[in-house]
Design a protein around this nucleic acid. Sequence first.
DNA 1: GAGGAGATCGTCT
DNA 2: GACGATCTCCTCT
Length: 222
Amino acid sequence: MIPTRRTTPLSYAFYDRDPRKVARALLGKLLIRKLPGKILSGRIVETEAYLGEDDLAAHSAAGKTDRNSILFGPPGYAYVYFIYGNYYCLNVSCLPDGVAGGALFRAMEPVAGINEMAKARGIDLSVAGGAENVALLRRISSGPGRMCEALGVTRERDNGKSFVNTRSDLRIVDDGYRVSHVVVTARIGITKSADRPLRYVIRGNPFVSGARSAHSAQGVID
DNA sequence: GAGGAGATCGTCT
DNA sequence: GACGATCTCCTCT
């Protein structure tokens, strides 16, 4: 599924709105990491919306700190945080400067630079049927921590980076791919405000994360 | 295939 | 000092 169509970078205005709309609209877009001499990319298949100060599960719920200040800044910037001593998670800020909100990238389908991303994850695609083995490909970027590891995203390197600036090495583009059905479920891995339907996944896509809980979670088709 | 628990450390109180 | 927007390994069925 190499993108051959013309791609359009998402604009500042795309992110300058309700995180629920942004999270929903991000599905099907291409997340691109430009590295010297190569490009890594994947199609976004799963996101979550975090609404700001009135959403107890959001990092911004307790107010602005050094850590979460990006969420309170202008839209279209990367908010990267370190979690559980091992993993990074990547968000994009939403809503106007001064209003907290963001969308978390939870899973993507590998599109380009697959071998590099697999290598970064410590996955060997040279085994029998590796490149066509969906179970193996899932392990590359089906989960927030996995995505970041595959794309080499770290807080030191990417926190506060613009998704809109044409010189940024972290971009999101629309290649014309259209999502037919979106399933909306409760968010994963949180305890506060855990029942709010703010997780968005492409229905039937094998690359979404949380397969265990996803089977039992009640989803609403949007 | 499903479920449980440990690893690991930055951030906040 | 406690907790956490996770992942992987291990065990059980």
